[in-house]
Amino acid sequence: MTVQYAMVIDTRLCIGCGDCVVACKTENKVPAGLNRDWIVEATSGKYPELHTEFRSERCNHCSHATCVAMCPTGASHNWRNTNIVLVDANKCTGCKACIAACPYDARLIMHPDGYVDKCTFCHHRVEHGLDPACVSTCPTRCMHFGILNDPGSKVSQLLKSRRYKTLMPGTGNQPNVYYLI
């Protein structure tokens, strides 16, 4: 893998406003009723001793992407040999093996066409040096995007300087969306 892209989201600043979700739907013209990203709220404790965490979730563009491994046609592939996982609509049979293979349930079936779709990390923007739509819209600026194998990048710096976690590391998929805690 030449480039490892990562998204780093600061849960201390995220307010769960869902702007990233709407930004994705408009930027990527996601059909009505379908989602590439979503917001999870986790509240623990007992009133008034409480902690609430908001998480903007999407495909983790896993370094070990089981969806790609399971795809029988090569429709699920890595973009330009990076960790960005894309689906090639004109290779996709809609067999749904990749959906079963994703422990994060990050994939969806494009209706009415029937091929599988998912978060693309907005590679069409990344290609031009732009942040993904969700990142560039987030009003709290709690989302960061960049190259993890570039030690100078903001994302690398943040992971060096802050405590963080990923979702369900137990899956072994090595997710690349990181949450600062």
Binding site: G16, W38, I39
Partner: peptide, 18 residues
């Protein structure tokens, strides 16, 4: 621990259960 989706997700055949 209350963990829930605050934006609904209803991707056909994936939500609410695969």
């Amino acid at each position: 621990l209350e963990e829930l989706l605050v934006t609904p997700r209803f991707n056909p055949k994936v939500d609410p259960l695969l």
